[in-house]
Nucleic acid binder design. Structure first.
Lengths: 98, 98
DNA sequence: TAAATAATTCGGTAAATAGCGAATTAGAAG
DNA sequence: CTTCTAATTCGCTATTTACCGAATTATTTA
């Protein structure tokens, strides 16, 4: 869910998300694969990076309903806001490969 | 969550909810006590029954935000719909004390 | 082609949530 | 005052979900 809200700001690659959420890459990758399988997000390979982005035209009606009402979704809003801030300033070239 | 959606239809007592969800009374009671503690619902004692109803004026802004956007909440919609059907026809005098 | 980086898959553990039954409390009714 | 029914509390188990590390794959770059 935090991932979906971040992707609302802009597409991100796995290592950027990993850095922002402070989780293991494997964990992030698993979540992304589920979101992809269910049709919430799309994958866009760009060289050695894999960018993920919100699926604008989900096949399933229910998925698009969820995505378009994402803003009503509840969570730790303080956390979500700082996530979004980080998304805005994250720099792939600094963050990946440490 | 299923409980909140049912209470949108009308106030219910514990044994009605127990009957509809097919769960142990203790389980239902626990969920209700959490919902009450957080301010989602109110308790209204009526003789030996305790009715629960959606709190129309929650103290916390966030709670009212959640309640008013309840319809956007996702779940097993088929299940939710049959729950609601049952709420409409449930009869306290038949259901309690079996 | 070898080394380096991004990502994934797999197997397992940890944490959170949901559930139950037994014992207890509160009120109603005999 | 005793019994009956609705509801609650408590301790525990089961299920689900989140997460990690190690091994592996894909791609770029030296």
């Amino acid at each position: 869910m935090r991932i979906l809200k971040m992707l609302q700001i802009k597409p991100l690659c796995v290592c950027e998300i990993t850095d922002i959420l402070q989780l293991a890459a494997s964990t992030v990758s698993q979540h992304l694969s589920i979101l992809k399988k269910e049709g919430f997000i799309l994958e866009d390979r760009e060289g050695k990076w894999v960018n993920y982005l919100i699926n604008q035209r989900p096949g399933d009606q229910r998925i698009s309903a969820i995505l378009s009402s994402l803003d009503f979704w509840i969570g730790d809003n303080q956390l979500i806001d700082t996530d979004k801030q980080k998304v805005k300033v994250v720099d792939r070239y600094k963050v990946c490969g440490l």
